[in-house]
Nucleic acid binder design. Sequence first.
DNA 1: GAGATAATGTTTCCTTGTAAACAAAAACCA
DNA 2: TGGTTTTTGTTTACAAGGAAACATTATCTC
Lengths: 154, 154
Amino acid sequence: MDVPHSSSNAINLGRLATDIGFLLRLAQVKVYERYFREYGDRHIKPGEFSVLWAIAHNPGVRQNVLCQELIIKRSHMTKLVRSLEDRALVSRRVPDEDRRGVELTITDKGQTLVDEIAPWFFAFEDCLGEKMNATEREKLKAQLLKFIASETED
Amino acid sequence: MDVPHSSSNAINLGRLATDIGFLLRLAQVKVYERYFREYGDRHIKPGEFSVLWAIAHNPGVRQNVLCQELIIKRSHMTKLVRSLEDRALVSRRVPDEDRRGVELTITDKGQTLVDEIAPWFFAFEDCLGEKMNATEREKLKAQLLKFIASETED
DNA sequence: GAGATAATGTTTCCTTGTAAACAAAAACCA
DNA sequence: TGGTTTTTGTTTACAAGGAAACATTATCTC
């Protein structure tokens, strides 16, 4: 099993080099690096896009549900949603049935942005791991799903 | 292909649910959750441990090399190392050959801590994904390594 | 050798994300 | 009904991590 990027002044990482937590961190850093390399003038970050996308696909979704499904803490979600609202990409409505909560819907402007970004956002993944073919990437995804599911027994 | 944790008030995440960046984030969150669930009174965080471990295995390593190998930015590494030094776990030495740099070595106290934590830190991974058997986990790791390598052509 | 350039760490400021305290509105329960 | 508890979202204060400017030392070039 090869070990990640052993440059000239390589050091010995021992078991850490194949630790699953460490590998997950490295993989995510790589994804981020590529994201921002191809970022261009799309002024939307991965987290923001995932929220926008989820609202687009679930009109009127409650903010709280979004937190649970995207695994984002409430205090942070407040900021993300406010930022999207400030840019007129989503709108908030306090429903009469439960005046504690907030229902979120995407605006026309937001939908336009999603339509524009989504192809890039998801195609982006196809450029990921150019040296991995599609089959291998699907296997990796399947195994990540299994891993996540196995940790979600709570 | 199953989709992560569809609770009662599930929503439709569409393609996002199998996006590799999204899955990597979820997987890492799960690892962190478990880490801190089993954290106990071990007052060392994953990042700190990885630095300490790397120093232990590479006595006299240059701080800069550590940055490259662990993919941690210099400004952050400064803080991590200072924190370890403040706890007398590592010691810093400015070598005469190159007075810009810093050589790091682990102290006896640091080594004792590594010896104490390491078995838990790495065994910890064996409890990860209890519903995944060892073979499957090895496959996942192998594919993560391939993924990382394929993104490290720069 | 002297000045320009590069490498290494540190500092300062900013972004992302969380934890804990809080406010408001349900829901529960006697 | 009237209090207690829970749910939901916001605020505030903080931790993790990074970008950019800086200081210091080494290297490179003439």
